[in-house]
Design a protein around this nucleic acid. Structure first.
Length: 111
DNA sequence: TGTTTGACCGGTC
DNA sequence: CGACCGGCCAAAC
């Protein structure tokens, strides 16, 4: 199967899969990296279909506030928080602590 | 083809 | 940091 599709969805998947362990990114950052900085909502929509791929760490993708907005879309609401804590990320009240420190910007790291 | 939806963002108070 | 408002993009119906 071809991973390099020109679809917006796969574009998001590839970036998400590039997120280092112990780091998190935001929908807007990915959207901006893809070119559509204002299309953050579209990224979230694409992530809704992320279940199509097994290696898409959706738990590493949160909103700009570092809030686990997508936790409800996981098999279990606690799966996302546990996954983040499993990678060394502190999560309090569905919110990532030291988000600015854990934040990983594809357009800044990947250049 | 037009409308609706959605795991959002930025600026401002 | 918290809350409110307007806007922008792509897929699904």
């Amino acid at each position: 199967m071809k991973i390099d599709k020109h679809n917006f969805f796969d574009q998001v998947y590839q970036v998400v899969k590039l997120i280092p362990k112990g780091r998190v990114s935001s929908y807007g950052a990915i959207a901006q990296y893809l070119g559509t900085k204002s299309g953050a909502r579209t990224v979230g929509y694409a992530m809704n279909a992320a279940h199509s791929l097994p290696d898409v760490p959706a738990h590493r993708v949160v909103n700009r506030s570092g809030l686990l907005t997508g936790k409800h879309h996981f098999p279990t609401p606690s799966a996302m928080q546990e996954a983040l804590e499993e990678e060394g990320i502190l999560v309090k009240n569905d919110k990532i602590q030291d988000f600015d420190s854990k934040f990983w910007d594809p357009s800044r790291e990947l250049t």
